[in-house]
Amino acid sequence: MMQDLLANPAVQGGAAPFVAGLIVAVLLGRYRLGGLAVTAAFATAVYFIAGFGFTPLSATRKIILLGLVAPIAGIVVDFAFRPTRLGSILLAIATAAAAAWVFWPVLSQREFARALLPGAIALLAAAWVVGYSEQRLAGDSVRAAASGLALGAGTGVAAIFGAALTYGLYGVAVAAGSGAFLLVQMITGKRSYAGATFTLSVTVVAILIAAAAMVLAQLPWYSVAVLALVPVAANLPLPAAAALWVQAVLASLYGFVVAGIACVLAWHAGG
């Protein structure tokens, strides 16, 4: 019975990651590490779906590895450096380099013309999402969490439409972790600390999964480009006087509209 439950994809990608994320968000929030909720959620999904084997080091396993390294980098950034524009740019460049490391072995097997567009989109989207989120959202835990919720969910659903259900579950797990981080803030009415610990954990995994669904499955490039605009949507104006939970709902809705467009495009891409 329990084994059947844990084998259910909805539990593996949604319920179990959400519970793990909620526990971490509650327990570590006071230490400014509540953003690790996303990593807890993602790691839980990986544990149930694929496990932590890294041989051979495929593109998917590289993404999992980066998903585990990103929060460590985030903690170092948050506790050792002050947030600056240059820092955001450097993180963006580093993520683009990571995307190249992930996808180059696959794209190098193709003709240059067929590799150029997905390769360029993967690198640009990765750099943009990480750089923008770090610069504009890391200091606002509600917007950052709303962006993570919409980006994760949008990536998950779009990846499923792109014939990659595993990536879909990973995307949903990122959404579950972000949702847990956001829910704690909505219930307590207090903002948590997001910082690079949260934004890097979300953005590195989510955008690389979206790019992987494009390079390795059938998610169209323009869906990935639209998904990259989710953080921008979550940064649209909010009523400053409104309750925190209202701001959280509104920011999430902004993100979901853009993520929804990406999903619709993915659904219709098959012709």
């Binding site: 998917t60 014939a163 990659a164």
Partner: peptide, 25 residues
Amino acid sequence: DKGSRPRSRDEHLRSPDFFNVAEFP
């Protein structure tokens, strides 16, 4: 033929969920 679905079974089998043909052709 995907029909009214987003993707056909063969397309899904080619994805990273199964044969991952883009990476391991």
